[in-house]
Nucleic acid binder design. Structure first.
Lengths: 114, 114
DNA sequence: AGAGCATATTACCTATAAGAAATATAACTA
DNA sequence: TAGTTATATTTCTTATAGGTAATATGCTCT
C-alpha cells in the first residue's frame, strides 16, 4: 500500500534492522548467525529480513539448507538519492569528494555502465 | 524511547512529511499554507510537524501569530551520514575512487615527464 | 522414504502511528 | 478588554509494527 521510498525509510527506522545491515556489510550471513548476533527470536529476525527485502535493502540466496542474506544497493540508493536532493540545497557547494564522484559517474556513463 | 537515528528515518518514512520538507526547501511556510497544500486536517499537519521537529528535520520560528516552519539540516545530515557509510561499501565507491585517483596521479606523472 | 537442520509462516498480544473532531492557548487588533 | 486568527493539544478510533511461541516447509543425507 505504501510507496517504495516510505518502505525503505521505514526499514531503516529500526536499530535491529540497521544492525543487520551492518553485520552483512562485509559479506553475507545466515539467519542463524544473525539470530545469535542480535539476541532476538528466529521468527523475529525472519520478520525483519522480510521488511528489509521488501525495502530493497537485502537479497537472498540459497546455499544448501541455508539462505544467506546479502546487502542490496537498490534500496539504499533510492534513500540516498532523495536525501541528496536536499543536501545540495543546504550545502550549496560540492566538496572535493563529491566532485570526484561526479567525474567518476560521468566516466561510468560514458563507458556505458550503471 | 527510540534512538535519534530511528526517529529521523521514521520521520522520513511518510509521504506527507516528505512533501512538507519539499514544500519548505525553498523557504519557510506557515502551518496554514501546509494544511492547504496537503489536504489534511490542521491537527494532522501539526502532528506531522511535531514528528519532524523531534527528528531534527525542521525548526520553528514565531512571526506575529504564525509559526513558520523552516528546514533544518541537522536531521538530514544524520541520516545522510549513516547511509553514506554503507553506500561506500555497497557501491564500492572508495575502491573506484582510489582507482580514479591513481589514474589521475599516473596522468600527472606522465604529463610531468613530457 | 525418513531424519534432521535451517528457515518461513501462523497466531496472538501489546504498543504505537495516523487520522479526524473538539477544545485550548497565544498573539494580534478593534 | 473582547474578538479574531493561527496553531497546539486532547481524545478517540482504526491500522500496523514488533515481539514471542508453536508449527509448517524445504533441503540434504542416509
Amino acid at each position: 500500500m505504501t510507496d517504495s521510498l516510505s518502505r525503505t525509510f521505514l526499514a531503516l527506522a529500526d536499530p535491529t534492522r540497521r544492525a543487520i545491515l551492518a553485520q552483512i556489510a562485509d559479506g553475507a550471513q545466515t539467519v542463524t548467525v544473525l539470530v545469535a548476533a542480535n539476541g532476538l527470536s528466529q521468527p523475529g529476525i525472519s520478520k525483519h529480513l522480510k521488511v528489509l527485502k521488501e525495502a530493497g535493502l537485502i537479497r537472498r540466496e540459497r546455499v544448501a539448507t541455508t539462505r544467506p542474506v546479502h546487502l542490496d544497493a537498490a534500496g539504499l540508493q533510492k534513500a540516498a538519492g532523495w536525501i541528496d536532493h536536499y543536501r545540495r540545497h543546504w550545502e550549496g557547494a560540492f566538496d572535493r569528494m563529491d566532485t570526484l564522484l561526479q567525474r567518476l559517474q560521468a566516466e561510468e556513463v560514458k563507458n556505458g555502465r550503471q
